[in-house]
């Protein structure tokens, strides 16, 4: 798919403070249409805060967010509503409704935000479940599904409204390496299948580099790197290489410990 000249989502100089702590201190980011972009960063760097500011869950203190050429401001309810119609969010903990079945969870956004008939809603919801290989579990409650199935169910709910942009908040948090691979494969597969633009915030470097078209690194409240996965891998920037090569650094530190050398503690 060709990249349009105009990015689907553009963030300029976004600021967010919590009390005295400036979590986002001028974040700028461009998300090209039809691409999968990952925002990397260590825990507490502000990745989820950035995503929540974009999704409208949190209000940014300063900065401009442009979606498909329209500036999203607090006062412009129409632009915000249009953004919500064309954007979905997949939350870290999936945010599924425990008291609703899988089918009811998927049908919820269609039922509440469209004028489709009951029959059309049911057909589209079942189709979304079938595409994510969950049609056999349509009557199951989220608590009866495995972690991977819940993730797919949350994705089914996110894509049932046919959004142009899907925001993924730490989709692999707390998962083992095999499940991390499976989740990134799922995101990359469905992103290409349904042609949505994906913005993923994560701290899983290897998986993000393989799955993403572009990556950005959030550090110290600003984006210190933006480029392709290949450019990220080749970067000689100190912050980028420290984050990218953290596994190698761990190996070096462990070797030193085994040799009985003193290893300086780092801020975690």
């Amino acid at each position: 798919m060709a990249i349009s000249a105009q990015p689907l989502l553009k963030v300029e100089s976004l600021h967010k403070r919590f009390g005295a702590a400036a979590v986002l201190a001028g974040v700028s980011l461009e998300v090209p249409r039809g691409r999968l972009v990952s925002v990397l960063g260590r825990s507490g760097a502000g990745k989820s805060v950035l995503l929540k500011c974009l999704a409208g869950v949190l209000s940014a203190d300063e900065g401009v967010v442009t979606f498909d050429g329209h500036v999203l401001s607090e006062g412009d309810a129409a632009a915000r509503a249009d953004f919500r119609r064309r954007c979905s969010v997949l939350f870290q903990g999936n945010a599924l409704f425990d008291s609703l079945t899988a089918l009811e969870n998927v049908a919820l956004p269609l039922e509440q935000t469209t004028r489709l008939t009951e029959r059309e809603i049911r057909a589209r919801s079942l189709e979304a479940l079938r595409q994510l290989e969950l049609d056999a579990h349509s009557d199951h409650y989220p608590g009866e599904l495995s972690g991977g199935m819940q993730k797919r169910l949350a994705l089914a709910r996110a894509i049932v409204t046919q959004p142009e942009l899907v925001l993924f908040d730490e989709p692999t948090a707390g998962l083992d390496p095999l499940r991390r691979n499976a989740v990134f494969t799922m995101i990359a597969k469905y992103q290409r299948q349904f042609h949505f633009t994906a913005l993923v915030v994560t701290h899983d470097v290897p998986e993000a580099l393989v799955a993403s078209d572009r990556v950005a690194l959030l550090e110290g409240g600003t984006m210190c790197f933006q480029g392709t996965s290949a450019e990220f891998s080749a970067s000689t920037d100190g912050v980028v290489s420290a984050f990218r090569d953290s596994e190698a650094a761990l190996g070096t530190a462990l070797s030193s410990i085994r040799r009985g050398e003193v290893v300086p503690s780092e801020d975690t």
């Binding site: 929540k52 409208g56 509503a81 919500r84 119609r85 954007c87 969010v89 939350f91 945010a95 509440q112």
Partner: peptide, 8 residues
């Protein structure tokens, strides 16, 4: 938060 992001 999920409801709000869905526009519900």
């Amino acid at each position: 938060a999920a409801l709000e992001t869905m526009g519900v």
